[in-house]
Design a protein around this nucleic acid. Sequence first.
DNA 1: GTATTTACTAGACTCCGTCTAATAATATAG
DNA 2: CTATATTATTAGACGGAGTCTAGTAAATAC
Lengths: 197, 197
Amino acid sequence: MSPSPGRPRRASQELLQEAAFELFQLRGYRRTSVEQIARTAGFSRATFFNFFSSKAELFWVETDALIDALSGFLAAELDREEPLGLRDALLEHAGGMRSAEIPWALQHYRLIEAADDLIASGASRVLGVNRLFADYLRRRDAGEGGEGGRAAIGGEARAAELTALLIVALRSWIDAGVERGRLRDHLERAFRTEAGL
Amino acid sequence: MSPSPGRPRRASQELLQEAAFELFQLRGYRRTSVEQIARTAGFSRATFFNFFSSKAELFWVETDALIDALSGFLAAELDREEPLGLRDALLEHAGGMRSAEIPWALQHYRLIEAADDLIASGASRVLGVNRLFADYLRRRDAGEGGEGGRAAIGGEARAAELTALLIVALRSWIDAGVERGRLRDHLERAFRTEAGL
DNA sequence: GTATTTACTAGACTCCGTCTAATAATATAG
DNA sequence: CTATATTATTAGACGGAGTCTAGTAAATAC
């Protein structure tokens, strides 16, 4: 509560996002300029860049929070004496996700392919999740009197596989519409492919 | 041989690429402007955009040719009475790839993450390959008195899985250095994960 | 009050991608 | 040989993204 010195904030990420999402719905992502977003929210273009490093970053705020939560869950899991397999860890943590928790960006994931900067920033998130998974497997297997080098390639492959399947499950879950229930069913269905063809 | 009317071409994709790759090596992708590329090759910025729709497209020309070849192989495979499974088709076609055939862009794939437009254009290629695989599975299974709807989700998952594993194999193959041999070994090692953990 | 600190803004800059209008170099028709 | 059609290349302007600097506004601290 102790008020800090200096001019108090008027702008916020939330205010800018509100304006932005409305404009995105109305005119599309590409035809909405940063200037328009900022002015609609009642601020200047320069202020926008005080809150987001790019137009695309505004799109991913809530999704990044989800990824951070997953990252935290996996880190905690690694601290247990018997960490779950990555697949089961995903089923336990992400599986419980409810429809209301889907961020605006994922709800409207079809917008992504229409803009290069959204594709780039989205791909960066996917690569980040992949790194997260690869680290988890590496550190989990290291803590199991592991084989070291040989398993490394397998670990990369396993991480990439689960990253891809997570995305497929997410997409199918979102496409299922408002009555979609929890993510778990779709995750299990995607993971079922693993047994190979 | 019949000479067509109009001013003859002086510029070409190859000339522009030569200049570009040299500059990329020298100063990095981001700090090389389209203007510099065009002037180094002896042309104007406007001419550059007559040959490439963007700076990033120049990067992917040879890689796109590889993807087209794979696409052709899969299409031909679907015309046979007993098309291979996707996994075996990849082993047969891509597995035979030799070190000398690696395009400049893939050889230098680490450049990609340094520039947003390369990430975006690279991700578009990955999504394209994924669509290619999903189509293959869909059409192959349709031609086998298929089950229709149920298999669709599994097909998407299987396609995403194999796309991810192909990329892991490619990366490990390229990282293996000049004595890397054929792609097949790395593909097999990546596919071995499928059996599940 | 004045000084300090922080939030916001105006404006300039580079680069990308798009577009239009102009010029240059060739083939062909007469 | 000249005129015309056709195609390649160019100059130049534009809007938008992202970067940067210098300045103004609104609060606290003294």
